[in-house]
């Protein structure tokens, strides 16, 4: 029945600050003050957490392996007549006490208690990295290698499965590849990051350009380079194409690059976890467990990117 225009009109609710568009997502589920949507697909979540476990064990068993010869060099040989780039060692101080010393590019630091000399099972022990950073805790090269080579396979197989899935599902093209607008906004994004200002509302459902670039660099540069340099340490893998490891500076250089890549990945993880915390730790962690990410509706427009 047509409405009588002379009668009072029904009250129309005030339009929300953010248009209803997001609710048109198939996967959106309204919640008070906003909606949730499926941010991370199940395979990506599984790959992510396997990666967390594998990288943690690889780092810590790797540091135990480093402790078997706590020094880093450039070139093919460790005994070239040139001093190491990095060295952790225990020395006797003039007063007769033992000190842990770290020498890096010719600069020397007293790092007693952490690097060079630290407590293992209640006893001061000469070792590179401290026991709380290594798997196993004490110096045990054979066991550290067993851990390392098992989880190296986990990392590689998980990584290949991820890249295969991400390419097939268009996760890379859709979510990770920077758009033209992303590239144009890179300066603004840097400023936003430095001011800890992050996209909210609908804008937070997309990765920002620095985030995309960070993921791409880790996935396609750092991790492959680290794995390749790990293979560069294998005398057998060296023989597959004799001399290939010299393209990277030699086997000892490969060992140094492997080590530096590992710490760059640690740096990435620190920034990643920092960003997870300041952009809503529960929302982010939940989205990587259940997949669902919450978007708030009533967001002032000026903080949207």
């Amino acid at each position: 029945m047509p409405m009588d225009p002379t009668l009072p009109q029904p009250v129309v609710p005030a339009s929300p600050a953010v248009p209803d568009a997001p609710l048109q997502r198939e996967d959106a589920r309204p919640v008070p003050g906003g909606y949730t949507y499926r941010r991370h697909a199940l395979p990506v979540r599984v790959f992510h957490w396997i990666n967390v476990v594998a990288l943690t064990i690889l780092l810590m068993s790797g540091l135990n392996i480093f402790n078997a010869h706590p020094a880093m060099y450039w070139g093919s040989s460790s005994y070239s007549g040139r001093p190491p780039l990095l060295m952790m060692t225990a020395v006797e101080a003039p007063d007769g006490t033992a000190r842990g010393v770290t020498r890096i590019f010719g600069h020397q630091f007293d790092t007693t208690g952490v690097f060079g000399l630290s407590t293992v099972y209640g006893e001061l022990t000469a070792r590179g990295f401290p026991s709380w950073l290594t798997i196993p805790d004490g110096n045990w090269l054979a066991m550290a290698r067993s851990w390392h080579f098992f989880f190296a396979w986990i990392l590689v197989l998980n990584g290949l499965a991820y890249v295969g899935y991400a390419a097939w599902s268009r996760h890379i093209a859709r979510d990770l590849a920077p758009t033209r607008a992303d590239w144009r906004g890179i300066g603004a994004s840097i400023v936003d990051h430095l001011k800890f200002r992050h996209p909210k509302g609908e804008a937070a459902t997309r990765y920002n350009v620095l985030q995309k670039l960070a993921y791409l660099v880790v996935i396609f540069v750092l991790l492959p380079l680290m794995i390749l340099m790990g293979l560069g340490l294998s005398p057998w893998a060296n023989a597959v194409w004799p001399g290939w490891v010299d393209l990277f500076g030699g086997r000892q250089a490969a060992r140094t690059i492997h080590f530096v890549c590992a710490w760059l990945i640690v740096l990435f993880v620190c920034i990643h976890v920092f960003e997870v915390i300041i952009t809503g730790v529960w929302n982010n962690v939940r989205s990587m467990i259940t997949g669902r990410y919450r978007v708030d509706r009533d967001v002032p427009a000026e903080v949207q990117s």
Binding site: I65, F66, A68, H69, A71, S76, S77, S78, Y79, L141, R145, L233, P235, R251, Q252, R255
Partner: peptide, 10 residues
């Protein structure tokens, strides 16, 4: 090149 399991080479 001799590669020791400890990590050094000569």
């Amino acid at each position: 090149r001799h590669d020791c399991v400890e990590g050094w080479s000569a």
